[in-house]
Structure formats: C-alpha cells, structure tokens
Computed example of a mutant assay.
Amino acid sequence: MFPKIAFLSGVLAALYAPAALGQTFTLDDTAPYDPFSYRILQDYVVKDGLGDPATVNFNNGTGSGPNPYSVNPVSLKRTMVTTGNGTEVPVFDLCTEMFVGPTGTSTYDVSAGFGSLSASQEGDLRILFSNTLADFLITTASDYDDAAVIGAAIQLAAWEIIEDDAFGAGFYSLDDGGIFPGALSVIDYGTGYDGTADAAILLAESYLAEINAGTWSDNGGYNYFYAEAQGGEQDRMWITVGITTIPEPSTALLTLFGLGLVMRRRR
C-alpha cells in the first residue's frame, strides 16, 4: 500500500501544487465560528474488516476519561471554513483533545498557533504535520483507503504527542503500556485490530519513531490555528497549506524524466 505513496510524494509534490493550495486566512481571535461557518468536505474514516468505523482502545493512564478509552471513529477531516468576509478556505481538521466527547454543535473561538499546548508539543506537532500532510493531501485525490490510513495515523500520532504527558518528547510510542505503565498507549497494539486500523496504528508508530530519533525536522509550508470549542466538543486544530516554493515546470519535467530513466534501468 505505502510504497506507491512514498513514490508519489516525490513526484506529485513537484506537480500537484496549484496556486489554490497556497491559502491561509486571517481572523479576529475572538470571532466565534458557529457550526454554520464550517462544513466537512470529507471525513476519511478508517474502517474495520467488516466495513464499520474502526475503534481504537487506549490505556488511559494520563487523561480524565474511562480506562480503557475507545475512539470511534479514527479520522482526519478536510473542512471548509467560511471567514468573516465570506471567503471559503479549506483546512485540515483534527482533534486535539481525546478525552472530551464530541457534540457536533460547538462554536469555536479560533486563534493563530497552538493554543495552550507547550512549546515542546508545538515543535513536535509542526514536525509531524509538515512531514505527513503532503501524503494525505495527495492521496485524497487518488485513493480513499490510503488517505484514510494516513489521516488516522496523523491523528493517532498527534494524540500521542498531546496526551502522553507522562514521558513526552523522545519517548513517543503507541505501544508503551508495558514499558512505561500508566502512559497513554494503544491496547492490544498490532494484534487486536482489523483491516486498515492496524495499518494506521503501525504507520503512526513509524511517524513517532522518526520524531523520537530526530531524523525529521519542521519543513514549514503550513499555517496553524487552534479552534477552542465553546460547546463541549473537542478542541480542534485547523491547518492550511502555506505558500511554498513551486518548481519551474521544466524542473518538474526533468524530475519525471530522471525517475523514468531510473525505473527503466532497474527493469
């Protein structure tokens, strides 16, 4: 499933970058965004082997919810936000609070940045998003199943960074329950899930391993906004694609030509 995504990332990143993707929005930090000002473009929900929304069970040793804590479904959304002047801007939309139940009717107070999250959490989330959202963006246009797995992996990894405050940076893992009792972890990791849920957990773990090892850095290219729920729902992270350097068409074509030669030689 994922080798083709890795290949597409290098090729399509050079070509799949129309001006429409370079969007951001400014806002009044106190402006309420009521449910009529945002709508889901697509909810990439991970399904289990029977086609039902997948549930991931967490050993909640750090949050305020029950133990274990079940998340159903696991997803990352694409949402359209209508700003105060009527402009519609697409955003990546993910949950920042695991242990708060959704209502679907919240009004959000939105501010630029990462809300009350720590500087360390902000830095690691920037690293996570800037290294993974491009794959999600590409696959939303080509493969729903792959997009669902990537979207869920990003959400799971973000929860680990935000909620696993027992150990923090350098110790991120969805499988740390046995090693670090009491830390946030997935129960029955790698054994208790069907279909794409298991793939999403494994992919999230690979993201966290890169952050732990320090092999990833913040590549930039995104703008971050914290949507604080006023109606009992989870706080959200809204992320827009920033203006990045777009290769000249000739450069993109040379890249494809070079890749074609390499693949031909391998055959």
Rank of each mutant, 00 (worst) to 15 (best):
S173L: 03
D135M: 06
S206C: 05
A169M: 00
L203F: 10
T30P: 03
F171C: 09
N131L: 09
D52N: 15
G242S: 14
L128P: 12
G182I: 02
I138D: 02
F58T: 03
T255A: 05
N85S: 13
N67E: 12
Y16V: 06
L128E: 10
Y226E: 09
T82I: 14
Y33T: 03
S37P: 01
V241N: 11
N57M: 00
A157M: 06
R266T: 08
T87H: 08
D93P: 03
D124A: 09
T251H: 07
A213I: 03
S130C: 04
D194K: 13
A112S: 11
Y226R: 10
I187P: 05
A199I: 05
S217P: 02
A19P: 01
E233P: 07
Y108D: 02
T30W: 08
L256Q: 10
G190L: 06
V45E: 15
V186G: 09
L259K: 09
A252V: 13
G151I: 09
D145T: 13
G151Q: 10
T132C: 14
E163T: 10
L41P: 02
E163W: 09
D29T: 15
T83E: 04
V241A: 13
K77D: 11
D143F: 10
A158Q: 09
L94G: 12
T132M: 08
E228H: 12
L174N: 10
W238G: 00
M98H: 03
E205Q: 15
L27Q: 08
P32E: 05
G168H: 04
S130H: 02
G214Y: 03
P32S: 02
G178Y: 09
